[in-house]
Design a protein around this nucleic acid. Structure first.
Lengths: 270, 270
DNA sequence: AAACCTTGTTTCATTGATCGAAACAAGAAC
DNA sequence: GTTCTTGTTTCGATCAATGAAACAAGGTTT
């Protein structure tokens, strides 16, 4: 089955493992890192020497423990947060699209609006609310309400105190009702909206977060309500939550649990 | 002379070179990178495969060109800007301290104040204004005025319009005078202050910037005015400007011009 | 259409860089 | 003192990394 050859360089892969390790837990020394990663001291020592010479790690004053270096921040700056979010979400959005044939949306909050970062158009293309780059309201829509629910309290109240445009009959415009809904969204960690932004449309949304509790984006499956039934709804919810969870993992410092079974950790001999 | 062994791993070093290259110029393909870096296609291909599997680079939709991946942003976030600035400045501050025996200060602007990020105490320790973690005014002091000069115009005017505390007789408290001084600082790209914050003290400051024009920090040499003469002042100015320039280079995406002559680029045979 | 680029991918044999093990120096803890 | 650590250094064998070259797949030009 493995028609996909593995061209990775074990040496480089190991170095990245050390770098990731220092991101996860800084202030470790050669021996400690070697022990925890199951590498020899020689290798860790040499990897650290290499990374340090390039500024990717730096040793503490006591000349013993290491941490991330300035170059990591420099490159990180260059990468850009939103762009990185896009990249991290790419495969998962493709998969969701493939799996559901509905519209898939990636949203972030930008001030007191939501910004559509990326979309995948479903097969049953409806009048599409979400187009990448577009802005929308925070108080209506599956992903929007999710982002509002996890927004800073002050902003939340500011929105609730402002004009709550009514888009459909189902749009919630009563601050108290919304407050209650937002609390429930926070409690359950996901949101399903129907008809509240577009008549005849549904949206199943889940949060993406780097640190537990700190939501940075929302992922949603949206489509025509006519096609939705209990079975599908449950499936979509599971799917979008799983995808959002995996994207979150990719964006967390612990890192995703190794993308592949690493290059020959140990030989398979008897 | 080379009592310092080189334990770097060439393979890893090359991978970092590719990564840096993609930071400097994204959207390049295997062949292009190989050509520009003087590597073989095989190697670049394998390095990119390795980096991609870890999310450090990602290939564009057309399956041909690469750019920085989401993981770079994740680690960069973790590294932290200020911490990285500290690390990048460390050696240069040590060198300046060694070279001048005066106080060395690294300052950033934090809102409408300056924050002392790091210091090196000179041999002729005076009543030290600067201690790491301390805040100070933006309108008096060598580094402070430098940061004010390159601050956003709105903030500059806000400061000039506010209360300009007089610390000594030399403190400039006239908005128009200050405006003129700030313009000169911007023009010449450095600043020397005397007596304006502490009586009998001087400060020779130079800016640190990642992008030309965008100043992110100030590096300064400070000490008792009694020890300063024209000769010393010129020397200090040259020294601090050079150091600030090198730190800036380390923090720029182009990267410092190779920290070391790379691991065996070509054998030295006849 | 054919010829001719270019690209990314794959193979393969050689070699020399990489690696593990072990010795070493230098502190820290006891 | 001894006995733990720690980071550093040496060194020889091995095998992973490498360069060269072939390959497939598109694009462009003719």
């Amino acid at each position: 089955m493995a028609d996909q050859r593995d061209y990775r360089i074990a040496s480089v892969d190991r170095a990245l493992t050390v770098l990731e390790r220092l991101a996860e837990r800084p202030d470790q020394g050669v021996t400690e890192i070697a022990r925890e990663l199951g590498m020899t001291k020689s290798i860790v020592f040499r990897i650290l020497q290499t990374l340090e010479a390039r500024g990717f790690v730096s040793r503490n004053a006591e000349r013993s423990v290491y941490g991330l270096g300035y170059r990591v921040a420099v490159l990180g700056e260059r990468a850009g947060h939103r762009h990185s979010l896009l990249l991290a979400a790419r495969e998962e959005m493709d998969a969701l699209s493939e799996e559901t044939s509905e519209n898939i949306n990636l949203l972030v909050r930008d001030g007191n609006q939501i910004l559509v970062l990326a979309t995948r158009e479903g097969r049953h293309s409806m009048r599409l609310f979400a187009a990448a780059g577009r802005y929308g309201p925070l108080h209506a829509g599956g992903g929007s309400l999710l982002l509002l629910a996890f927004a800073p309290p002050e902003l939340r109240e500011e929105i609730l105190a402002g004009t709550l445009t009514r888009f459909t009959d189902a749009t919630m415009t009563e601050p108290d009702v919304l407050r209650h809904i937002l609390q429930r969204i926070r409690d359950q960690g996901w949101n399903i909206a129907k008809n509240d932004l577009d008549e005849g449309a549904f949206s199943v949304a889940a949060p993406i977060s780097t640190t537990p509790g700190e939501v940075i984006a929302a992922l949603s499956i949206a489509g025509p309500l006519a096609r939705l039934n209990d079975n599908r709804q449950a499936m979509y919810l599971t799917a979008v939550r799983g995808a959002a969870q995996r994207i979150s993992a990719k964006l967390s410092i612990g890192g995703p649990a190794e993308p592949a079974p690493a290059v020959s950790a140990e030989p398979t001999n008897a």
